[in-house]
């Protein structure tokens, strides 16, 4: 469970779940995150789960590190398997126009383009966390044969909707932004939608994501911009 509890600055608690990065550790983080969210304490102003950490930011006007730490200790954490996590199907188009790092990956992974797609589509992925920019999901784990490092020089602009891979993870660029992941395709879905007030992101931590291939024509029809 929690290996260490520290303060991060004067208004955040840093829960460390240990150095192991895997689904098991992350499920514990997400269970803890869900329980705190459910508890809905008014002094908590933000929760940030990641692979093996949870950061709880609070309002220093209302509480402090020691007080809130004590209060949180009494909150029961329910197991993630008892919670309902969604299975989400995401369309992806591998057209030349969107498969930006095709040549690089063929060379690096010593696989054909078809083999890369097959191995990528073969699995469903667990969402470890969302963030960095609004709604970006960090998905894993991708097949061992697809793992490679980031681009040496990041792109200044990765198009919105691009799907990238690096190391054991995959992600979706929810906004045009700089980035160094290897881009394999693009989804027409709007992953982040601020008009959806109840739940502005399509993929949440703990969800399972499966990609299915679509043609360029289908992409253009589905494109939500």
């Amino acid at each position: 469970m929690i290996k260490n509890i520290l303060n991060l600055g004067d208004s955040s608690i840093y829960y460390d779940f240990g150095e192991q990065i895997n689904k098991e550790t992350n499920k514990k983080v997400i269970s803890f995150f869900n329980s705190l969210k459910k508890a809905n304490l008014e002094e908590i102003i933000n929760l940030t789960p990641s692979y093996n950490k949870l950061i709880v930011s609070f309002d220093l006007k209302k509480t402090n590190f020691i007080e809130l730490k004590k209060k949180i200790k009494d909150i029961k954490t329910s197991n993630i398997d008892e919670q309902k996590n969604k299975k989400i199907e995401i369309p992806i188009c591998f057209d030349e126009e969107f498969f930006l790092d095709k040549e690089r990956l063929i060379k690096k992974l010593k696989l054909s383009a078809e083999e890369i797609l097959e191995k990528y589509l073969n699995k469903s992925y667990f969402c470890y966390m969302t963030g960095f920019v609004a709604g970006m999901p960090f998905l894993g784990d991708i097949s061992k044969e697809l793992r490679t490092d980031r681009l040496k020089t990041p792109r200044l602009k990765v198009p919105k909707g691009s799907v990238g891979i690096t190391e054991q993870f995959s992600n979706i660029y929810t906004f045009e932004s700089p980035g160094g992941w290897n881009i394999i395709g693009k989804t027409p879905y709007k992953i982040f939608n601020s008009n959806n007030k109840a739940n502005p992101v399509l993929i949440n931590p703990g969800d399972n994501v499966h990609f299915f291939p679509i043609s360029k024509n289908e992409f253009l029809k589905l494109d939500e911009k």
Binding site: I44, N46, L47, I55, F132, A134, M136, T174, F192, N204
Partner: peptide
């Protein structure tokens, strides 16, 4: 408040 976990 309360949107760090989705990247806001």
């Amino acid at each position: 408040e309360n949107f760090y976990h989705i990247g806001l």
